[in-house]
Design a protein around this nucleic acid. Structure first.
Lengths: 215, 215
DNA sequence: ATGGATCAATATGTATACATTTTCAAGCAT
DNA sequence: ATGCTTGAAAATGTATACATATTGATCCAT
């Protein structure tokens, strides 16, 4: 009973990886035949993968009805980042009100360990937000937020490498959010989380105006 | 240059309609071959439609990897309804802070006309929420909320017919939310919108425990 | 009688061939 | 030179055939 991963799933994951890593950039063509040849399969599983990418917001239809890696103009980017910020705030407030004692201790551990100098910031940040998402105890909001965050990743990779100065202030913000949650202060958690997300997105708009173009 | 709708789109819309209208109920099989014969096409466009249904949360994989109309246990239902309530509240607050004067007047008109006795409540409710969604001026949140609301529809149809008593109180709630928005009172708009959505979902849990079952 | 293995049935996964649509360019008329 | 028409090229949309996997039942061994 060996379960072999289906090609459609594998191709989907592979293309997602290429998009969020920057190997595929917004506007790049996603034609079926070249992809099929690249993976050594027919167009059928490639089509399924592309349709899923489109449903997830990472691809859109371009000329000739072909899929392209999603492009976003400045307005769309602002909407996306604002949505993520508001949702992260919402989830942070819920976490502040209903996290279990175990989950709170795990959060403290993540923040504390993340303040060491030999740990990867990106991973710490992911674990931090992951812990809060889990603490909100709502699978639907978790999935929704994951989808939106995935859509921001292609635009964040460039920024992540550039601004190491963000790491130090981000650690401070993490601790501030953690304190608000530990104090069951939902409103304060919202405020600080919104500010944290906004700060994380700072400087991305100029990248958009360079790389992105209106669909 | 006549643009003929593609089968995949048509089939997708048709199945969505059947699901939200109750003709297809949670747990019902969505096998490819019967659907292909029903629409007089091959399995290919049917598969695309089903995959899109799954991505939209209206279908899920069942036995034999076949798709079925999505079932939800009580916990999943609570998560979904809570998510909708929180997001509606979020959007209401944003609308209160940034609706244009024109949009505010349109909202007043919708609420006022909705209080007449010869108009359909479901339509009025849809127009009311649509106006607020638009007033939030964020396409991403609008799309997200539309997706989640669509997922609640299959469970609301039964309820909508049953409880006519909700109409009167719902009108009062609409006016309360409107007043908060007109007063630019974001926090009050959140509170009232959450209460409104929660009241709209009242009584659905028992339907879940009858119809739905754990996946 | 029960447990497990094997095999057939059925539905999905993939490959391939054909149809349709969309671009783009070349050519003609104005 | 400009604008429209026409047609060929290329990509997606659909149909069909084949491969694979899952499920359920039957048969055998204990």
């Amino acid at each position: 009973m060996q379960m072999v991963e289906r090609w459609a799933d594998h191709i989907h994951s592979a293309i997602v990886q290429k998009i969020v890593s920057g190997e595929l950039q917004p506007g790049d063509l996603l034609n079926e035949l070249p992809l099929a040849e690249e993976f050594g399969v027919s167009r059928t599983p490639v089509r399924e993968a592309l349709q899923r990418l489109s449903a997830g917001g990472l691809a859109e239809r371009g000329r000739r009805r072909a899929f392209v890696v999603r492009q976003m103009d400045v307005a769309a980017m602002q909407d996306l980042f604002e949505a993520v910020g508001e949702l992260e705030g919402l989830v942070a407030r819920m976490a502040a009100l209903r996290m279990t004692e175990l989950e709170r201790q795990a959060l403290v551990r993540i923040v504390t360990e993340g303040e060491r100098d030999d740990v990867d910031y990106a991973q710490t940040n992911a674990r931090f937000h992951g812990a809060i998402h889990a603490g909100a105890h709502n699978q639907v909001l978790l999935d929704t937020l994951d989808d939106l965050n995935l859509r921001t990743l292609p635009w964040r990779v460039a920024q992540l490498r550039a601004s190491m100065s963000r790491v130090q202030s981000s650690r401070v913000e993490h601790r501030g959010i953690m304190d608000a949650i530990l104090a069951n202060d939902g409103d304060e958690a919202v405020r600080q989380m919104r500010a944290h997300v906004a700060a994380s997105f700072m400087g991305l708009m100029e990248i958009v105006s360079r790389t992105g173009s209106a669909p």
